[in-house]
Design a protein around this nucleic acid. Structure first.
Lengths: 211, 211
DNA sequence: CGAGAAACTCAACACGCGTTGAGAAAAACC
DNA sequence: GGTTTTTCTCAACGCGTGTTGAGTTTCTCG
């Protein structure tokens, strides 16, 4: 340990290959997912990435754009939801519940953009719109055909309910919900979601709504 | 209209009876409910109440305490939920769903403190704790007796799901959910909530969980 | 009616934020 | 190898925030 090998920040460009942009991206994704939009500051992200704050501004033009670059419903999650919603009605409920829990509680590269969107949705218009579209998305991409208003409402309600469960477990941190294992939660939720998405009385009567 | 009867802010105490504290409280409640914790500034609240910002600080000692004074699950709502959850199992689901929608979408004096709590829950520790306790509350006050862990989980899941629906309608503003009338939403949700809170297969098998 | 408390405004503080411009060092290109 | 481009740091700006202290007017109580 000589006098200057320890965090003496050189003044110009660093030698070697450049991985800084990705480091900033990773740090931002983690911060936005954990702390939300408002509590995440550019200086904090820059600190995590061991970079000056103005560097973050040069790569991404503003905090808003940095957030937009990091918050999303990742393609892998989209695919997950599509294959869950489509397909036979038999285990529809279980598939959909597992898709939600899996996407939000799985690997960071899939869950962090979702968490960033969810946490940002209350305070950031961009995130709010993205979440809104996500909840409504089962309306458009659903196997073409019938644009049933009732089916759209049912899908939207199921999605918002499951977002509520994820929020309870991962954002609010309700102990009872956190403590329960995934399989247990699925076993309780699956029949309810099944009943909402594929309405049919098992006892045989054909009509179920009254309003 | 003479020269000085119009908003010439006197320098000291105002003549007449003092209603300012209540005005500040009302303004704060409305702001926190509509704009959330972070976007609500003391100066904005003071402006709404036609008072200087430092006056707000004198009444309530900090922004945190002002928020705490205004965000809550009001007693009327608590009672609503208690009577909905207790009682016969027959229309349990419908009662509970109606309790949630009614509390959050009813009169401002009941819905505003709830909205303030909900909107603040992501960014404010106090609100988060309050919402956490609310979602778990059906565990303790439930008619003494059996402290069934499974029942507690079911109640927590039902609550977080319904909070999710309310969030979708009133915070995120999902068009499909907003457009649907209360009765329609109830008719879709009631059977699902019923199945979660009062689990029993209508066809007769006694066990329903497998994890 | 006089003293103390309470309600109220004004002006300002310190702080952290997002953001900017200038300049230094390394890389990339011809 | 010299020029241009890119990456990076430093220092600072303007702004809005929560918060404070001093000063002014009215109410309250003896």
């Amino acid at each position: 340990m000589t006098a200057q090998d320890h965090a003496a920040p050189r003044r110009g460009r660093r030698p070697g290959s450049t991985t800084t942009r990705q480091a900033v991206l990773d740090a931002a994704r983690a911060r936005f997912a954990r702390d939300g939009f408002a509590a995440t500051t550019i200086r904090l992200v820059a600190g995590d990435a061991a970079v000056d704050a103005s560097q973050v501004m040069q790569f991404f033009r503003s905090k808003e754009e940095l957030f937009a670059a990091v918050m999303s419903v990742p393609p892998s999650a989209l695919e997950r939801f599509s294959t869950a919603f489509e397909g036979p009605d038999e285990h529809l409920g279980e598939r959909v519940v597992r898709a939600f829990l899996g996407a939000w509680e799985g690997a960071p590269e899939e869950s962090e953009p979702l968490m960033a969107m969810l946490r940002g949705a209350i305070v950031n218009a961009n995130a709010s719109e993205q979440l809104r579209d996500f909840i409504e998305s089962r309306l458009l991409d659903g196997t073409s055909g019938r644009t049933d208003a009732d089916a759209a409402l049912r899908a939207g309600l199921a999605s918002s309910m499951l977002v509520g469960v994820v929020t309870g477990r991962r954002v609010i941190g309700v102990p009872t919900l956190v403590a329960a294992g995934t399989d247990k939660v699925v076993s309780v939720l699956a029949p309810a979601i099944q009943g909402i998405l594929a309405p049919q009385s098992p006892t045989g009567n054909a009509r179920e709504d009254r309003a």
